[in-house]
């Protein structure tokens, strides 16, 4: 059963007086209207659940800033938006942290092509264990002698993406070979 909007304010007022039942009902309703809001903005269902939990905890912590006299939903949405932005900021910062600098990739590609002491054949077993796309790129570049540009043309990928995939493959191989 969906509680009418005007009743959310009443529920919050009762919650502030310590009514556990009203508070449980209010949080249920809040979850009900926030879930679709988050689902529209996040990809994975697990992410939606994580952010929703954050928001519910924040609502709980900040409930003294609501007096029951003004509409409840704008207050709850303000907190939801704040926590969602926090989440997205952390998410993108993390992605940026793991992003690969193209110049770094290019240096490494030259280094690997010209100075490598390890032949493709000697580590072909390890290359086969790589994700299929990375393995195929290394095979074309180091066994068949294609350049990154030619690999890009053959696979329909863009050249930078080929270089980044090759760089990631080198990183994995380096870790494996250093063991």
């Amino acid at each position: 059963m969906t509680v009418k909007t005007e009743n959310l304010e009443a529920l919050m007022k009762q919650s502030l007086d310590g009514d556990k039942h009203a508070y449980a009902q209010l949080l249920q309703e809040t979850t009900r209207f926030l879930r679709p809001y988050l689902a529209q903005r996040l990809n994975a269902a697990s992410e939606v659940d994580d952010v929703l939990q954050e928001i519910l905890i924040s609502i709980h912590k900040a409930r003294h800033t609501y007096d029951g006299e003004r509409p409840y939903k704008p207050w709850a949405y303000a907190i939801a938006k704040f926590r969602l932005q926090d989440h997205l900021r952390a998410h993108y910062a993390d992605q940026l942290h793991h992003a690969v600098e193209l110049s770094e990739v290019e240096n490494e590609l030259q280094e690997n092509v010209t100075k490598s002491d390890i032949s493709y054949e000697s580590i072909s077993g390890e290359i086969e264990k790589l994700p299929p796309r990375q393995a195929a790129i290394l095979q074309m570049m180091h066994r068949e002698g294609y350049t990154a540009k030619e690999v890009a043309e053959k696979t329909g990928m863009n050249e930078s993406a080929v270089k980044v995939a090759a760089h990631r493959a080198y990183k994995i191989l380096r870790k494996v070979l250093e063991r």
Partner: peptide, 24 residues
């Protein structure tokens, strides 16, 4: 989903009376 339900229960159990903040 189960986690959310557990969280809602635990927050509701924690619903002690709270004095609202003063008006701005």
């Amino acid at each position: 989903m189960a986690n959310i339900e557990e969280l809602l229960d635990s927050l509701a159990q924690d619903a002690a009376p709270v004095k609202p903040a003063p008006h701005p």
